[in-house]
Design a protein around this nucleic acid. Structure first.
Lengths: 352, 352
DNA sequence: CTGAAAGCGCTAACAT
DNA sequence: ATGTTAGCGCTTTCAG
């Protein structure tokens, strides 16, 4: 907003018409004489006029902007994927997106929401809300909210992933390869106990898929093969040790491991190699997310999350509120569940 | 901007004062009677008033917002790091950031700049501009510009990395371990020939560091050990093959490989393993960026780029324009060069 | 087909 | 210590 730029008024003066007329040619509204249009367009050209969105927004009482709150765009590339999807879909519809990374901090999240309200964002998205209270805050300001991937129990639009199916598909793949002793390793749901989530935790859904699939194929569910820990950190990429060695060096070594993120799977690979084992020769590994799975050695079989699509869908839900502006009968919140896909690469193979 | 929210005027009416008075307590400006302040604060509390930033921006002719254009936040996590740095530093100073991902597309980049101009962003940042013309576009609109990491030849603020030193440090580390046949693998500078860059290409700087260091230690520069290719793609993560096998299976096998990104290094590891070799036993590998280097097997020695700091510094440069508003003698564009650090992990070892 | 004019919600002189 | 008021740049009725 540096040096003063051309205004509509300037253009009008130069073209010798009123501001209303300029606005008409700008938005192709109403009748306008061809000759006038040409004259106005020439003036626009000449001055390099560009509409002042700030003034426009004030006038029309909309900003066509989405505030996007991310738990942490780093270190897990999953979030960058969602952010990209959000931005792409938004800009395709002429919307803008403001982004705030809170790195897991509820206080910063609150500030983000507060700012977004002040900026009069037309919608607010949480790609993984940290605190319920902040979701409520946005809602109370009368702003449509979309929660992505790990919604709280508060009713808003939601777009989630079919974690149960994703997990099921992974385990079935392993069972199909002859595996019977399969480790499940994931973040501990209890860690997020501060908030109540809608439905069940992502991690719980995946665990349920694991358990039910074993059951379905008549395999025993062995609690010792389930490893849950607080492996996620927004700032320090997992310094926590993964208690896998005992299993790997024990008598009844598992033949496959299902990890609930690529980052975790990568750590699992490191542990496996440290024990002198080979993948998939001695043990198969499946990751989740499909972020940098393809870059690991060997290229990792992984449950692919529809990151981009998650973001795009979230935007579509938000835009709905404004599409049919004539239908104020505020439609209820919607929940969309997206499928996952198992990408089979080289980290899984038949059991020996 | 949904349902009509409380305005300053409302608050004034309820508190029984003028809007000017409310503004005074809001910003703690000028004299105000304690009693009045209390009354106003009560009214603010009661109504849940929140300043309308849109109106405010129009009035003060500033937006306190930065438009951030990213070549592609996916797939290289490097960009997410920069984006985080930008956002953190901005919000710490009460600034907002709009983000646009152009995924390497000059057309989309242009649209992004155009939008940012219309939104009256106070500054525009390019984390790796795609096209010179777009940088110029922003500049012509009178908006301060910061180019990050791979600036074009256009003069603006710039924050870059000391690629030469980064490369030098990596090669010295290898030479110190006794390596003499070291492969350099990187993106081909010629690929970006469409634009002229300021100083030299990032890749060229790194190559120069490699070459000069070999020279310094009296080692021969062997062109056959330099592999340059178009390994980067914004959308499909490198499908291109890396022509490394001939070298790995040849007579005089190199004992170390220096790759100019983690993504490339990851691919190199895969090739090495495919040839049945071990790291670092048979061959050492160094990556660049230090994004997911720690997650590879073995954990990768890598030249760490100051991603967050790159972003933060860029914001600081942009803010300078507004700090000392009284000094209109527009100070010249500044260029800041940030250091890299070699993070030694387990992918490098003494030559056998 | 075109123009006049009323604000959107706020800030900052300028008065008092 | 507080109030009045003139815009910021734009959109959109309402008149003609």
């Amino acid at each position: 907003m540096q040096r003063k730029s051309t205004t509509l008024k300037d253009v009008a003066r130069i073209a010798g018409v009123s501001t209303a007329t300029v606005a008409r040619v700008l938005y192709n509204n109403g009748y306008i004489a061809d000759e006038t249009r040409t004259r106005v367009q020439a003036a626009i050209q000449k001055t390099g006029y560009r509409v002042n969105t700030v003034a426009r927004n004030l006038r029309i009482q909309r900003t066509a902007s989405i505030g996007h709150i991310l738990t942490g765009i780093v270190p897990n590339p999953f979030f960058a994927g969602v952010a990209l999807g959000v931005e792409q879909e938004a800009s395709q519809h002429g919307w803008s997106v403001l982004m705030v990374n809170v790195q897991g901090d509820a206080q910063r999240e609150r500030l983000g929401v507060e700012t977004f309200i002040q900026q009069r964002m037309d919608a607010i998205m949480f790609t993984t809300p940290v605190s319920e209270a902040n979701v409520r805050l946005a809602l109370e300001a009368g702003i449509p909210v979309v929660q992505v991937e790990r919604p709280t129990s508060i009713a808003t639009h939601m777009v989630v992933v079919d974690n149960y199916a994703g997990s099921t598909e992974a385990i079935e793949h392993l069972i199909g390869l002859g595996h019977r002793r399969i480790v499940f390793i994931g973040g501990d749901p209890a860690v997020r106990s501060a908030d109540k989530f809608f439905g069940s935790y992502v991690e719980e859904e995946r665990l349920a898929g694991y358990r039910d699939t074993l059951c379905k194929y008549g395999l025993p569910f062995d609690e010792r093969l389930v490893i849950l820990g607080q492996y996620y950190s927004m700032n320090e990429p997992f310094e926590t040790d993964i208690p896998l060695k005992p299993l790997l060096q024990g008598a009844e070594r598992p033949t496959a491991i299902f990890a609930t993120s690529d980052m975790l799977a990568a750590r699992v690979l490191q542990e496996i190699y440290a024990c002198g084992l080979r993948v998939p020769g001695d043990i198969s590994v499946i990751g989740y997310d499909d972020t940098f799975a393809r870059y690991l050695a060997p290229p990792l079989t992984a449950v692919q999350q529809p990151m981009i699509d998650l973001g795009k869908t979230a935007v579509r839900l938000a835009l709905q509120h404004f599409q049919d502006e004539e239908t104020p009968p505020a439609k209820p919140w919607q929940q969309v569940k997206l499928p996952t896909h198992l990408i089979v690469r080289s980290s899984t193979g038949p059991v020996r």
